[in-house]
Design a binder for these strands. Structure first.
Length: 272
DNA sequence: GTCCAGGTTTTTA
DNA sequence: TAAAAACATGGA
């Protein structure tokens, strides 16, 4: 069995909300598809599969998370506690298009349903793979679709957003080039896509383009920041803010009692 | 029936 | 300019 770098927690990495194409099998192993490859890997002995250079890169095993996390933990006791809770969570190097597309689908949605939509997306439009499963459909494939074609996904109003993104990327918009821009410019470029706001742009940068300085803020992060870092700007976390974000996201969801309740909406007045 | 979900866009005040 | 409503869908 091949050794793998520590810290690395396969299960936590795959279930922390950064990806939507991995499933836990009955025996505890995980199966998923990335880069047109199907993989089944066990948390007990990930080394068997992770000798492959593609998967080592995908799981970001070449980066020194011990150093990154030590630097973050030194900044704040709260960060230290959050990082200690799930040591070994890595920021996957997902395909840029897949990350953009899946996080467009994530908006105002919950993780189990997002997973289901992505599953149907791949079942309907992905290519069959040798080891079973299907690839994530490329932008060219989806650019050829209409909103009606996407009806089986049951992704609601997000269908037109996915199509706008697909058409732009298929038409030559380079996500890789956006990933090399200064953060502010990269955000602005991504937000030209319909359905891509601050949160989705940040997720595309962090999870698809491996910009570890990106810092997605969703409802859970809003609670975490308000509770633990009132008034603090995410930029102060530094070049690895995204790693801090992932730890705080997991911590917040694991301890809903410790984060402030979301603001209650005022009584609503009817709707048609 | 109501609320919520890893939000964004559109409308209204 | 800022706040509220609308947007589809499905589970709790």
């Amino acid at each position: 069995m091949t050794a793998w770098p520590q810290p690395f927690d396969l299960a936590a990495t795959l279930t922390c909300g950064q990806c939507f194409r991995w499933k836990r099998n009955a025996d505890g192993s995980f199966s998923g598809v990335a880069g047109g490859r199907m993989l089944t890997v066990s948390p007990q002995s990930p080394g068997d599969a992770l000798g492959d250079p593609f998967w080592r890169r995908y799981f970001d095993l070449e980066s020194d998370y011990a150093a990154i996390c030590a630097g973050l933990a030194a900044q704040s006791p709260v960060l230290a506690a959050a990082l200690a809770e799930t040591p070994g969570v890595r920021i996957l190097r997902q395909d840029p298009w897949e990350a953009l597309c899946t996080f467009i689908l994530s908006q105002n949605n919950n993780i189990p349903r997002i997973t289901g939509i992505v599953e149907r997306l791949c079942a309907c439009f992905g290519d069959p793979l040798p080891g079973g499963g299907r690839s994530f459909p490329g932008p060219e494939r989806l650019a050829a679709c209409s909103v009606e074609d996407l009806a089986p996904l049951r992704c609601g109003f997000r269908a037109s957003y996915v199509l706008d993104a697909a058409r732009r990327v298929a038409g030559g918009l380079s996500l890789e080039e956006i990933g090399r821009l200064p953060l502010a410019q990269a955000r602005e470029a991504l937000r030209q896509i319909r359905g891509v706001g601050p949160k989705v742009a940040e997720c595309a940068l962090l999870y698809g383009l491996h910009r570890l300085d990106a810092f997605p803020v969703d409802v859970w992060m809003n609670r975490a920041m308000a509770s633990f870092f009132p008034g603090v700007q995410p930029e102060t976390f530094g070049p690895y803010a995204g790693v801090a974000q992932q730890a705080l996201f997991v911590y917040s969801r694991n301890h809903p009692d410790q984060v402030r309740e979301p603001a209650r909406r005022a009584a609503k007045s009817r709707k048609r």
